[in-house]
Deep mutational scan, measured.
Amino acid sequence: NQESVVAAVLIPINTALTVGMMTTRVVSPTGAPAEDIPRLISMQVNQVVPMGTTLMPDMVKGYAP
């Protein structure tokens, strides 16, 4: 099972992602793949992402898996 990126903390809208904001988990439906964490760092979210929420590609500005 592939791990997806999950918010480790509450991420406010327009916040640039840091490694400490993200964790990985096997979830369904799958979100952004765990191996993309290095690409996701410094990208901004376009909505509030509550802690424990799977990071879906459409939540991150300019990100395409």
Rank of each mutant, 00 (worst) to 15 (best):
I41E: 04
P65T: 11
R39E: 04
T24E: 07
T15F: 09
T18Q: 11
P50Y: 10
L17T: 03
E3S: 12
Y63G: 05
Q2M: 12
I37T: 04
V19I: 14
G52A: 01
I41N: 00
T54R: 01
M56K: 01
P29R: 06
T23P: 07
A16Q: 12
V48F: 09
I13T: 11
M51Y: 07
A16R: 15
P38Y: 11
E35D: 11
N1F: 12
S42A: 11
M43I: 06
M22P: 07
P38S: 10
M51Q: 13
P57Q: 04
N1H: 13
A32H: 01
T54A: 03
V48T: 15
G31E: 01
P50M: 10
V9Q: 11
P33F: 06
G31Q: 01
T53A: 15
T53M: 14
K61H: 12
P33A: 05
T23S: 11
T30L: 15
D36V: 03
S4H: 03
V60T: 05
S28A: 11
T15P: 00
G20L: 13
G62A: 07
V27R: 14
T24F: 09
T30A: 15
T18F: 08
S42G: 15
G52F: 08
L10V: 07
Q2T: 12
M21V: 02
G52Q: 04
M51E: 14
V6E: 00
V48N: 15
V19E: 12
I37R: 01
I11D: 02
T30C: 13
A34W: 06
R39D: 04
G31M: 04
G31Y: 01
M21C: 08
A16L: 13
P65H: 10
T23A: 10
P57F: 08
M59L: 08
Q44W: 09
P29E: 03
S42N: 14
Q44C: 13
V60C: 06
I13Y: 12
I37G: 03
Q2V: 14
S28P: 01
P57M: 06
T23K: 08
L40K: 01
M21W: 07
S28L: 11
A7Q: 01
L10T: 14
T18H: 00
V19D: 08
R25E: 08
L55T: 00
L17I: 05
Y63K: 04
A64W: 14
P65F: 09
S28R: 09
A32L: 15
I37W: 04
S42K: 07
Q44K: 15
L10F: 13
Y63A: 02
P65I: 12
S28H: 14
Q2W: 12
A7W: 08
V45K: 02
D58A: 13
M59T: 01
V27A: 04
T15N: 00
N14H: 14
M43Y: 02
P12A: 09
N46L: 10
A16K: 13
G20T: 14
V45R: 01
P12T: 09
L55H: 02
I13V: 13
R25C: 09
S4Y: 07
G62H: 07
N1P: 14
G62V: 02
V26D: 06
Q2G: 14
A7M: 07
P57G: 04
P57D: 01
I37H: 01
R25F: 08
T24Y: 08
M56N: 04
Q47T: 11
T15V: 09
S28I: 12
Q44F: 12
T53Y: 13
S28D: 12
T18G: 04
P50L: 10
V60Q: 03
V27L: 02
K61C: 12
Q2R: 12
N14A: 06
T54P: 01
V19P: 11
P38N: 10
T30F: 15
N14D: 12
E35S: 15
V45D: 02
V26Q: 11
V60D: 02
M22F: 04
Q47Y: 08
M56V: 03
A34H: 04
L17W: 06
I41C: 05
P33M: 04
N46Y: 08
N1M: 13
D36K: 04
I11S: 02
V6T: 00
G52R: 04
M59K: 04
P29S: 01
V49W: 05
M51A: 14
E35G: 13
V9F: 06
R25G: 10
A34R: 05
M22E: 07
N46C: 10
V19R: 15
A7I: 08
E3I: 10
S28V: 13
A16Y: 15
V48A: 13
V27S: 03
P65S: 12
T24C: 09
P38F: 10
T53C: 13
T53S: 12
M43G: 00
D36M: 08
Q47M: 09
V60P: 06
E35M: 12
L10I: 06
S28Y: 15
M59W: 04
R39L: 11
T30H: 15
Q44I: 15
Y63H: 03
P38D: 08
V26W: 13
M59F: 06
T24S: 13
N14Q: 02
S42R: 09
G52L: 07
A32K: 02
S4W: 08
M21F: 07
R25V: 08
P57T: 05
G20E: 14
L10K: 08
T18M: 08
G31I: 00
T54C: 06
L17N: 06
T18R: 10
L55A: 04
V5T: 00
N46Q: 06
T54G: 01
L40M: 03
S4M: 03
A8V: 08
I11E: 01
M59N: 05
V9R: 06
L17R: 00
M21H: 08
D58S: 15
M56Y: 06
M51L: 10
T30W: 14
V27N: 04
M43T: 05
M59D: 00
L40Q: 02
P57L: 09
P65D: 10
N14Y: 12
T18E: 12
P29N: 02
Q44N: 04
V26K: 13
V27M: 01
G20H: 14
V49R: 04
P38T: 09
L17M: 04
T30I: 15
D36N: 01
N1D: 15
M21Y: 05
T18C: 09
P33D: 01
V19Y: 15
V49N: 01
N46F: 09
N1Q: 14
P50V: 09
A8Q: 05
V49S: 00
T18S: 10
N46E: 01
S28G: 00
A8H: 07
V5A: 03
V45E: 05
I11H: 01
V48P: 11
E35I: 13
M51P: 10
V60M: 01
N14C: 11
Q47V: 11
V45A: 00
T54M: 05
K61L: 11
S4N: 01
L17S: 01
A7L: 07
Y63P: 00
V6N: 00
P50T: 10
V49K: 01
I11R: 02
V60F: 06
V19W: 15
G20Y: 15
N1L: 13
L40H: 03
M51S: 10
T24D: 07
I41V: 14
L40P: 03
R39H: 10
P38R: 08
A16N: 11
P65Q: 12
M21Q: 03
T15D: 00
A32Q: 00
L10W: 12
A16S: 13
E35R: 15
V60N: 04
V19H: 12
T24M: 08
I41G: 01
I37Q: 03
T23C: 10
Q2H: 13
G52P: 03
Y63I: 03
T18P: 00
P33C: 07
E3W: 13
D36F: 05
E35A: 14
Q2L: 12
S28N: 13
D58Y: 15
V9T: 11
A16P: 13
G52E: 02
P29H: 04
T24N: 06
P33W: 07
P29G: 04
V48I: 12
L40N: 00
T54Y: 06
V48M: 15
L17D: 03
L55D: 00
S28C: 13
G52Y: 06
N46A: 07
M21G: 06
A64R: 15
G20K: 15
G52T: 05
I41M: 06
T23Q: 08
M21E: 06
R25I: 08
P65V: 13
L55R: 02
V6Y: 05
N1E: 14
A32S: 07
P65W: 08
V19F: 15
Q47C: 14
E35N: 12
N46S: 09
M56I: 05
E35F: 14
T23R: 08
Y63E: 00
V26P: 00
T24Q: 08
M43Q: 05
T53K: 11
T18W: 09
R25A: 11
D58G: 13
G20V: 11
I11K: 00
A16G: 08
V60K: 03
T15H: 01
M51I: 09
P57Y: 10
L10M: 13
L55Q: 00
A7P: 01
V45M: 03
Q2F: 14
L10G: 05
V9E: 10
A34D: 04
V49D: 02
M56T: 08
D36T: 00
G62C: 10
D58M: 10
M22S: 07
G62D: 11
Y63D: 00
Q47H: 04
T15S: 10
A32N: 02
P50C: 10
